[in-house]
């Protein structure tokens, strides 16, 4: 590579090397500072020292690999390293990580140190060459192509040509047809949940029906529809759960400033969708003094005493309220489905 350099002046490039423009002037490419020799180029002791440093790094890396094997064999997985406030760590993992990571790092660091301090340090110019094929090769290729065209009879045998074009034109059709598997279209499923008039409200996980007296003022219940388990089992997925989960909260009737519908509470018990209207995180961070419900994902905050309106954060819509009442047996039930779609906005909702 050093053949590109002017002999006798290593690394000292003429600052005006370049091509001539239309007017025949020499264009300066870039100014270059004069080459500076490194300490290791001039002082053999410095070079020797750098060599020792690089060798030390490589040697330490080898030692760390040995330490890795020793740690792997000797340290049991039930030994823990207690660092007080920082935490308790499995000693084995800490040692394996430190030794192996250190070994890899030292090989890299040694190589870089070697390259910077000891390997040849010369500036050079790598000239750019034209990338195009020469005219002769191009003409020959065109000739080959035309010969092939004539020999295949592609121009004369029109039936073959047309059927081939037809076949190739139809070839992508399966790719388009298969797009159907992205569906079916959601239909009304984004606007409806399995809540309906008379649907029992049960506690989530434990599936207990709830009497109004079970919820004290200030209470919170994570709840779901009574038929959810059945529906989930039949459909084999959790889509309905993702839409239908609710929270029940109770406040004194005087604390309720407004609701999404007249009499949608039951003696101060309010039911709201648990799905944030921003991007659909489940929310139950309910502060019963302020009646605020906070979404942990992006800090959208809803005031459940005031129609579930957004009081803070990126959510664009209020939290849908579920109208509730009690059935003949005295258990809480829904009076209807939600009156607006639950969860985040979607394309067709506008």
């Amino acid at each position: 590579m050093s053949t590109d350099l002017t002999p006798g002046s290593p690394g000292n490039l003429p600052a005006t090397t370049g091509t001539a423009d239309g007017a025949g002037r020499e264009q300066p490419l870039y100014p270059l500072a004069p080459h500076q020799l490194r300490l290791t180029d001039t002082d053999p002791r410095a070079a020797k020292r750098a060599e020792r440093q690089v060798a030390t790094m490589f040697g330490l890396s080898a030692l760390l690999i040995v330490a890795f094997v020793v740690a792997y064999v000797m340290v049991q997985t039930d030994q823990y390293l207690d660092l007080g406030n920082i935490g308790k760590f499995q000693l084995s993992n800490v040692l394996l990580g430190l030794t192996f990571g250190g070994a890899v790092f030292l090989i890299g660091a040694g190589a870089i140190h070697w390259a910077k301090k000891l390997m040849a340090d010369e500036e050079m110019v790598d000239y750019r060459h034209p990338a195009a094929t020469d005219d002769e090769t191009r003409a020959s290729l065109l000739e080959d192509f035309n010969d092939g065209l004539a020999e295949s009879g592609f121009a004369q045998r029109r039936m073959v040509r047309r059927t081939l074009i037809g076949a190739l034109a139809l070839f992508p059709v399966p790719l388009v047809v298969l797009l159907r598997d992205l569906g079916p279209l959601p239909g009304t499923s984004l606007r409806e949940t399995i809540w309906k008039a008379g649907e029992r409200i049960v506690t989530d996980v434990t599936l207990r029906p709830i009497r109004p007296s079970d919820i004290p003022v200030g209470g919170l219940v994570n709840a779901s529809p009574g038929s959810l388990e059945e529906v989930q089992h039949a459909e084999g997925n959790m889509n309905e759960r993702a839409k239908a989960v609710i929270i029940l909260v109770r406040m004194t009737p005087e604390q309720i400033k407004s609701q999404q519908g007249e009499g949608w509470d039951y003696n101060g018990i309010l039911a709201f969708s648990k799905i944030c209207t921003h991007v659909g995180c489940p929310i139950a961070l309910y502060q019963h003094v302020t009646h605020h419900l906070l979404c942990p994902c992006h800090q959208s905050t809803f005031d459940l005493s005031d129609s579930g309106n957004v009081v803070f954060g990126p959510a664009n819509r209020r939290l849908p309220q579920l109208p509730i009442t009690v059935d003949d047996a005295g258990y809480l039930v829904a009076s209807s489905d939600f009156h607006e779609p639950v969860g985040p906005s979607f394309w067709e909702r506008g």
């Binding site: 506690t203 007296s213 209470g219 919170l220 909260v249 003094v289």
Partner: peptide, 18 residues
């Protein structure tokens, strides 16, 4: 008892076993 901002999880909706 739901101290401060914590809501109450009563024994009726979250029974002692839970």
């Amino acid at each position: 008892t739901g101290p401060q901002n914590m809501p109450i999880f009563s024994n009726e909706t979250l029974p002692p076993e839970s």
